[in-house]
Structure formats: C-alpha cells, structure tokens
C-alpha cells in the first residue's frame, strides 16, 4: 500500500513512551513525509507550539502529569490557535472526552482501538475540516467586511420591534452613537418627531409590498441633534435565522442643499429676465414713444424742451435699472462662490 505523501508536522503530547512509540509507528506506516515531535509535559508542549516548527496537527493525551481533561485542553487551546487537536483517551474517560468535543477539538480516539487506519482517517478528516472551516470563516468575514467596512451607513433592524440589531462603522461615524447605544435604540430614535408619520407610512407600504430597493428620502436626526436628509434603500435578509431588514442610508443633505441653491439662483435669474422684459422696456418704450411724437410735431414746437426733459428722465431711469441688474447679477456670482 502506498503511503500518503502529504508533508506533515505532528506534535504528540504523550507522557507514556509505549503509547508514543505505537503512535509513531502507525504514523510512519501511513505518511511518507512526516516530522514527529514528542512532548511529555504541558510546558514542553507549549514551548514546541510556540517554536518555529509549524505544527499541522496535535495528538493530545488527555491525562498528563499535573494537568488533565478539560483544563488541559483549554490551556493548550490558548496557544494552539487553529491547529486541529485530536484527543487520545482510555476507555475510562469516554464521557469526559465526549464533553471535550464541544470545546472545539477535532476528534477523540480511544487508545486501545487505535490502529493505523483509524489514526490516518482521523488526521485527514481533521485537516480537511480545518481548511473547510477556514474557508467558511473567510467567506463569512468577507460578507461581514462588506457590511462593516462599507463607506455607506448600513444597519439591520428587527421588523416587529424596529430595534437595531447591527450597525456598521460608517453609520456609527455618521450618526454619532456607539454600537452599544444603537443596540438599545429603535429606528424611531434616529427620526425627528415630525417624521414619525412618514416613517409609519413607509413601513406599512414596505410590509404590504414586500418592497425591495429605494424607499425614499427621509429626515434623520443625528446624536448631535443635527438633521440630515437621507436616501434609504432597504431589503429583507436572513440574519440569525430570522428575516430582518437591511438598510442602506445615503446622506444627500449637501446634494439637496446644492439643488436648493441652484433653484434659488434660477428664481433670481428669472427675476432678472422678468425685469429685462418689463422694467427695462418701460422707459425704453417711453423714449421711443417721445421720439415718435417729436417726429410728428414740428421741431420748433414749444413742447420740445418738455419732451427732451422727459427723454432725459427716462434715459436716467433706464440707466438705474441696468445698473441694478448688473449689481444683482454680481451678487448672484458672489453667492455662488461663497457656497461653492
């Protein structure tokens, strides 16, 4: 039978030399490229784990001098990180070993039943399981990071109690509450009082339509008391075996403020255009009307000085109006600069 060529470094923590030699034989029978360390005491084992030798798997006798059972496992785990641990035990300790399984060890083997096959299988399973769990954890972490490290404020809330279940870093930064504070709050607590009705309307609508995506623009209140306008996107997701609502909030206060400014400028420009059309043309039409009249009258008419006086008045009036438009336009530019 060919040996497994998987390169492995195994630490056997076993104070009984006979048992160790037996284990070593079994391992050498199954693995081709293998390094085996033996440690007889807890302290020696810790030193070995902490050393530069990269341990792939630990075989641990449950009964060592001075330290046994659960306490032993717990102590080892403080140093072993994600190295899989296989417990070796006698018949008398089966109950104990079973309990210890729940502490996160990979497997337990009964010494009297160990043979090369059983040992080999247990080691391979443990390694496989470790890489699978690592993969799962990595995926989980990726998704958690997507939530936690997203630059957009996001949170999860319970659909019936409206309580915050989780809140990401961006939301904590934006709203000013700590995660603990958030977890003692409901989504009502980040709304100004006058917004409750629109919140209730929106929630009712979302429930009835099982809506997904854009929910609308709402006013939220920060811890500082400041109000912001936010675009809300939300959808249902499963979280800890429960359907909860995931919310993404996009602060559009500046955007809305900017639009408001542009709208105000538009009104002003419209005013100026209206002035052009109505106010400027009034004296201008008067001037042209007087000229029409002068053309009609004889040039030596006694009214001529009066009409020329009126021409002058209308000309000055128009001059004032045009100056006024120029200064208003300048004001518009200044406002734009100050706010830009």
């Amino acid at each position: 039978m060919s040996k497994d060529s998987l390169p492995l470094t195994i630490l056997i923590i076993e104070d009984n030399l006979g048992d160790f030699v037996l284990l070593e034989d079994y391992l050498l029978e199954k693995f081709d490229v293998i390094r085996i360390f033996q440690e007889e005491s807890f302290d020696g084992a810790i030193l070995k784990i902490k050393s530069a030798n990269k341990i792939d798997i630990i075989l641990l006798d449950l009964i060592l001098p001075y330290l046994q059972g659960g306490a032993l496992v717990e102590k080892i785990q403080e140093y072993s990180g994600d190295i899989p641990i296989i417990i070796l035990t006698g018949y008398t300790d089966i109950d104990l070993a079973q309990k210890i399984l729940s502490m996160g060890v990979s497997d337990f083997l009964i010494k009297d039943e160990i043979n090369p096959e059983i040992l080999y299988k247990s080691i391979i399973y443990s390694l496989e399981r470790k890489s699978y769990i690592n993969g799962l954890n990595k995926t989980k972490k990726t998704y958690q990071d997507l939530f936690n490290l997203s630059p957009q404020p996001m949170w999860l809330y319970d659909i019936s109690s409206l309580a915050f279940l989780d809140v990401n870093q961006a939301a904590i930064t934006k709203y000013g509450y700590t995660l603990e504070e958030f977890k003692n709050m409901t989504i009502r607590d980040i709304r100004p009082k006058e917004e409750m009705e629109s919140l209730d309307d929106s929630l009712a609508q979302r429930v009835s339509k099982d809506a997904y995506g854009f929910a609308g623009v709402f006013v939220h209140r920060l811890k500082s008391g400041k109000h912001i306008n936010v675009e809300i996107y939300s959808s249902n997701i499963e979280y800890n075996n429960k359907i909860v609502r995931l919310v993404l909030a996009n602060d559009v206060t500046d955007k809305l403020e900017y639009i408001k400014q542009i709208e105000a400028q538009n009104v002003k420009l419209k005013d100026i255009a209206w002035t052009q059309s109505h106010v400027v043309r009034a004296p201008l039409s008067r001037i042209l009307g007087i000229i029409n009249l002068i053309e009609l009258e004889s040039f030596n008419s006694e009214d001529l000085p009066y009409l020329i006086g009126q021409l002058k008045l209308s000309g000055n009036e128009m001059d004032d109006i045009v100056r006024n438009i120029v200064s208003e336009t300048k004001l518009l530019n200044l406002n734009g600069l100050n706010n830009g």
């Binding site: 008067r286 009307g289 007087i290 029409n292 009249l293 009609l296 009258e297 009126q310 209308s314």
Partner: peptide, 16 residues
Amino acid sequence: DDPIFHIIFTRMIKKV
C-alpha cells in the same frame, strides 16, 4: 399708469 404715455398718446391722436 404711465402719465408720459398718456401725454405722448393724446398728442399723437390730436395730430392724426
């Protein structure tokens, strides 16, 4: 409401 327009207009009519 522009008295000048009244003046201009009435004079024009008187002429024509």
